[in-house]
Amino acid sequence: MSTIATNEYINQPEPEFSAEKMKEVQRIIGLFPEGKQKSALMRILHIAEEEFGGWLSVPTMNYVARLLNIQPIEVYEVATFYTMFNIEKPGKVVLEVCRTGPCMLVGSDQIIEHIEKKLNIKAGETSADGIFTLKTAECLGACGYGPMLQCGKHYHEHLTPAKVDELLDTLRKEHSDK
C-alpha cells in the first residue's frame, strides 16, 4: 500500500467557509502572533471537517493551506499524522470505540463485537446503508467510565449492549432521512 489519494473527489472545486465560519476562522488565526498563523491549522482542520462532510478531501486541505498561506503538503502531513482527521469519506456517523487497556478491562471488546454484529461490519468499515462508520480508538480519557465511545463531540460512557442498541436506533433515526 502507498498513500496516494486517488478518489473521485480529488478534482472537485475547493469548498469555502460561510461568511460566519470565516469570522470564527479569523478569530482563531488572531489568537497567534503575526506570521504564526500556521498554529491555527489544527483547529481549522476540525472546523473544515465539520463543515465539509465530516472528512478532509484533497480540495478541502488545499483550501485550508491557501487560507493559512502554507504549502498543501504541510496540511497533508498533519492530517495524516493525527488520528481524529478522516482522510477518507466516512459514513454519516462515526463511532469510535475506545479499545485501550482500562476500557478493555471493563468490556470494550464485547462492545466492539456487539456493534460489529449489529451493523454487520468490521471495525474500520462503513455500514451498507452508509450511515455508520465503526472505528476503534486509543484511550479517550474516559477510563473510569468505560466502556465508552465517542461520536462527534459526544462521549457515551458506561456502555452496555442495551445502551448501544438504543444509541444506534436514535442515531439511525436522526440520520436516515437526511
Partner: peptide, 21 residues
Amino acid sequence: DQRVHGVMHRGDHAEISTYIE
C-alpha cells in the same frame, strides 16, 4: 522553493509520499 513531498502517517506506518499524484 516548494516542497511537494513529505512524511505521511506516523509510527511504523509513516511513509514518504507526495500524497497526491
